[in-house]
Design a protein around this nucleic acid. Structure first.
Length: 137
DNA sequence: ATTCTTACA
DNA sequence: TGTAAGCA
């Protein structure tokens, strides 16, 4: 455990925004921003935000999703389905399948575009090099 | 000193 | 998201 500030009756480790931010390597602004987007809902004590271990793990999931290019709006949907049972699980998986499939398609399309451009550039490159070669010798 | 909100870059 | 401002 870290140097957390408070502990409730159930001995649950709690964090202040400063600790949470440092622990995850993000700014406090980022954490508040995600809250604004409905991704995290910390409880408040005298107006100040208090985060639980659960919130911390949730933030980890958010950062992971973001790192692979997931839009915050999709992360929110994913989180809303997360932790549910039965039907929720199914919808959770269906959502993941749908989104990953779309992302894969998008990336493959970009890859084709890049490959195409790459081929054109190589053609131009070789052509120029060829002409320069003839001019010299 | 720290956090919070709001607003602008 | 960073940064700044004005509070509590």
């Amino acid at each position: 455990m870290g140097s957390n500030i408070k502990t409730d009756s159930a001995s649950e480790t709690l964090y202040g925004i400063a600790e949470l931010a440092e622990a995850h390597g993000v700014s406090q602004r980022t954490i508040r921003f995600y809250e604004d987007k409905g991704l995290i809902s910390p409880r408040r004590v005298g107006g100040q935000r208090v985060y639980t271990e659960h919130d911390s793990k949730r933030l980890s999931l958010i950062l992971r999703a973001k790192s692979i290019g997931t839009k915050l709006s999709d992360i929110r949907t994913f989180l809303e389905l997360y932790g549910r049972e039965g039907e929720g699980r199914v919808r959770q998986l269906e959502f993941v399948i749908e989104k990953t499939a779309a992302e894969i398609e998008a990336l493959e399309a970009k890859k084709r575009q890049i490959d195409q451009t790459l081929a054109e550039l190589k053609l131009i490159h070789d052509g120029a090099r060829e002409r320069l070669g003839r001019r010299r010798g």
